[in-house]
Design a protein around this nucleic acid. Structure first.
Ligand SMILES: [Mn+2]
Ligand SMILES: [Mn+2]
Ligand SMILES: [Mn+2]
Ligand SMILES: [Mn+2]
Lengths: 223, 223
DNA sequence: ATAATTATTTAGATTTGCCTAAATAATATA
DNA sequence: TATATTATTTAGGCAAATCTAAATAATTAT
C-alpha cells in the first residue's frame, strides 16, 4: 500500500507529464506538492526504490507503469467524489476540490465501484475533466477553447481549463455552466476578445481572450 | 486541528467511558487503538497538554469537555457515513465499519452538514446506534436486550450490541434486521435460550442466550 | 570558455507516532 | 505485612516526512 504522501507525489508528477514535457523537474514537483525541493529529492529516491518512478539524479523523473496506475486511480477517485459532492450533496463547482483532495485517499476498491455505479458511471467531473474507468482508460472529448471557435457556429460548454474557485465563481455568476449553449457573434481582431450569446439570455456578452481560452467547448450535437 | 491519531485515541477513551467506568486505564486504551501501552502513555501526555483529557500518571484518564466534543463529532461522522454506505451504496451492515473508520476523519463541516441533510437526518446508523446531532446531542432509544423481553409481548429489532461482522452476517442469514418484529414464545429456564417467531416466517426459531442478549429491541409502537 | 546564476542534492535536524527493555508504582496474594 | 504479580511509566531508538543551510552540478550569460 502507498501512503497518502506518496499518492500526492505521484499525482503531481502525472499532472506535470500531462501538460507536455517528458521529464519532470524537482522544483516543478516541489511547487505542486508545496514542499521544499530537498524534500522532493528524498521522496523521489523512495519512489524510485519502489519502482513507481524512473529517476536518475539531476536527470528529472518520469512515471513507471505502476506509478501511472496509482496516479490515474487517485484521479479517478478525486473526480468521482467531486461529481458526488456536486450532484448529490449540492455543492457548487468551486467548493469541491479541497474536500475531494481528502476523499481521494480513502482506500476501498468496493467503495469506488459502488460509488461509480450509484452516480451512474459519470464520464466527466463538475469541471468537465474526464473520469477514467476502472481500467484507467480516459474517454476524453475533443474539446477546443472558446477562444478558437468559429463565429456563428453553436457550441456547448464542456469544461474549464482554469480551476481556481475565483474563476469558477465568476463563470457561475455570469451564467456559464457545463451543457450551456454559446453562439459566438464576433471575435475582435485587436484584443481577441469575444462577443457571444449565452443560451437563456438575449443580451450579448463580451469576454476577454483570457477568459475565453479557459472555457472548453464542443460543436453542438456531435454524434 | 487534531491529527487522525489523536482523534482515534479520543474516540477510544470515549467508548471506554461509555461502558461504565469513570477512569480509563492505559492498557484498555492500548487494546482499543492496537498499540503498546508505552505509546499510549506518550499520547496521553500530549492530549493532556492540549487539554483534551484530564490525566495524572497512574491515575487513569477522563475526557475534558473539548475532548468529548471531538470524540462525539467523530462518532457522528462515522455513523452518518455508515448510514450512507448502507442506504445509498447498498453495502450490507457487516461491510461498512472499516470504510467508515477512514471516512470519519475527513475534515469538512459543510460536508457533514450536507451529507446529514442528503440522508434525511437519520437518527440511527445501520447497527441501531444513535447518531448525535450537530450539537453532539444523542437521541437514544430506551432499548432492552432480546434476552430480557417478556414472553408474548411483540417487540421490534432496533440494534445490536455485538458488532462483529461474523455476528452480523449470522443475523442477516437468519433473517434478522432492524425494524423486524419478534414475538418471544418461550424462555428456557435451564440455559436462558429463547424460542421466538420472526415476522415473515411461520417457523419457530431457537437462539441461545448469548445471541439474544446481543440483539436490542423495543416494545412495538412506543409513542 | 569563463563566470554567474539557477537547480538539485547532501548533511544534519526536527516532529509525530511508534517500538522494546528497564524501572517503578500499584495491586493482589500469601 | 511482606512478597509476588501486574500495570504504568521512563529511557533510548527508529521510520516517515519535513525543514534549513551548505555543497555540487547544470545551465545561462558574458
Ligand atoms: Mn479537483
Ligand atoms: Mn475537477
Ligand atoms: Mn462502526
Ligand atoms: Mn455502527
Amino acid at each position: 500500500m502507498h501512503s497518502l504522501t506518496e499518492e500526492n507525489y505521484l499525482k503531481a508528477i502525472y499532472k506535470l507529464l500531462e501538460k507536455g514535457e517528458k521529464k519532470i523537474s524537482t522544483t516543478a514537483i516541489a511547487a505542486l506538492v508545496e514542499t521544499a525541493p530537498a524534500s522532493v529529492t528524498d521522496m523521489l529516491k523512495k519512489l524510485a526504490e519502489k519502482k513507481l518512478i524512473r529517476y536518475e539524479k539531476y536527470q528529472g523523473v518520469t512515471l513507471s507503469g505502476s506509478g501511472k496506475k496509482v496516479a490515474v486511480d487517485i484521479i479517478r477517485k478525486h473526480r468521482l467524489w467531486e461529481f458526488f459532492l456536486v450532484e448529490k450533496l449540492g455543492f457548487s463547482w468551486d467548493q469541491v476540490h479541497d474536500i475531494a483532495e481528502q476523499l481521494e485517499h480513502i482506500k476501498s476498491e468496493a467503495l469506488i465501484t459502488r460509488l461509480d455505479h450509484f452516480l451512474g458511471n459519470p464520464k466527466a467531473d463538475p469541471h468537465g475533466d474526464p473520469i477514467p474507468d476502472e481500467h484507467g482508460v480516459f474517454h476524453a472529448l475533443n474539446t477546443i477553447p472558446l477562444s478558437a471557435v468559429t463565429v456563428n457556429v453553436p457550441v456547448i460548454i464542456t469544461g474549464v481549463i482554469d480551476h481556481r474557485p475565483v474563476f469558477l465563481r465568476f463563470l457561475e455568476k455570469e451564467g456559464y455552466a457545463l451543457g450551456k449553449k454559446i453562439l459566438v457573434k464576433e471575435k475582435l481582431e485587436i484584443d481577441q476578445s469575444v462577443t457571444l450569446l449565452l443560451s437563456g439570455s438575449k443580451k450579448l456578452k463580451h469576454i476577454s481572450h483570457d477568459v475565453a481560452r479557459n472555457i472548453l467547448v464542443l460543436p453542438e450535437k456531435t454524434k
